[in-house]
């Protein structure tokens, strides 16, 4: 693992994305559209969806993340650049970390744009006091999504089904993450009402940390087999 090599991969992805903006823009528009649909799916009259906010947010984010995950490897695969990476004297784990960080950055960019809009649309309580907790719970979930997603997107791009395979293998593996993410994000938005709820939120946060560590290790251990014959 070599920091400057990881950085080179991240920078390459970010520079070409900033040039075309196709990924971030479509991810952001996806989240916006999801919000509009949520409004009509869950009561256009009573707009305080605070109790369900965590669930709505993660429904949108999870599906949105798959757009980016697929895209980041379609580039590499179609232009044959994955071979270029594999030919160079970098560890496979460096490639994993580089691609993972790139995916993480794009997720965060879209979230930074989308969360304020979401809050204005659906949240009627002031959660600024719990902003730190909110950001932490989103970041922890993002790390897990990027780790699992980068690993599984590399598999799906190598299949005949290409990007069609990703949802089928990525969503079930990420369900535990989503459950914990919804609990902790909802908790940060609505605040804990009782000691029991506080307990639940803190175990969800701990679960997120455990999930991140476990899947970072799994991805690290398995990536060799995923990218190389």
């Amino acid at each position: 693992m070599n920091l400057s090599q990881i950085w080179a991969i991240v920078k390459k992805d970010v520079v070409s994305e900033l040039r075309t903006k196709e990924m971030v823009v479509s991810m952001f528009l996806f989240v916006m559209l999801a919000m509009v649909i949520f409004n009509y799916a869950f009561g256009a009259e009573k707009n305080d969806l605070t109790p369900y906010a965590g669930g709505l947010l993660w429904t949108a984010f999870l599906f949105m993340s798959m757009l980016g995950l697929n895209r980041s490897f379609v580039h590499e695969k179609d232009e044959g650049c994955l071979d270029g990476l594999l030919l160079s004297p970098v560890d496979r784990s460096t490639i994993l970390l580089g691609k993972m960080l790139g995916n993480l950055i794009f997720l965060i960019i879209v979230q930074v744009l989308a969360v304020p809009v979401f809050a204005v649309f659906f949240i009627e309580v002031n959660f600024l006091g719990r902003l730190g907790q909110f950001i932490l719970s989103i970041l922890l979930s993002d790390i897990g999504i990027s780790a699992v997603g980068t690993l599984l997107a590399t598999i799906s791009i190598n299949s005949k089904m290409r990007d069609m395979l990703l949802p089928i293998i990525f969503l079930p593996v990420s369900i535990p993450l989503v459950i914990a993410a919804v609990i902790s994000t909802s908790g940060a938005l609505a605040g804990a009402g009782s000691p029991d709820e506080l307990q639940q939120i803190s175990s969800a946060m701990k679960f997120l940390v455990a999930y991140d560590i476990i899947f970072l290790l799994v991805a690290y251990a398995l990536y060799d087999f995923v990218v190389g014959e």
Binding site: N2, S4, Q5, W7, A8, I9, K11, K12, V15, S16, E17, R19, T20, H75, E79, G80, C81, D83, G84, L85, L87, S88, P89, V90
Partner: peptide
Amino acid sequence: SPLLYSDLTAEENLKFYGKLYS
């Protein structure tokens, strides 16, 4: 296949690979 990134300039492509190869 040229193994080059189409959204990067010629120089950026070479710089990228140059960093990978140190």
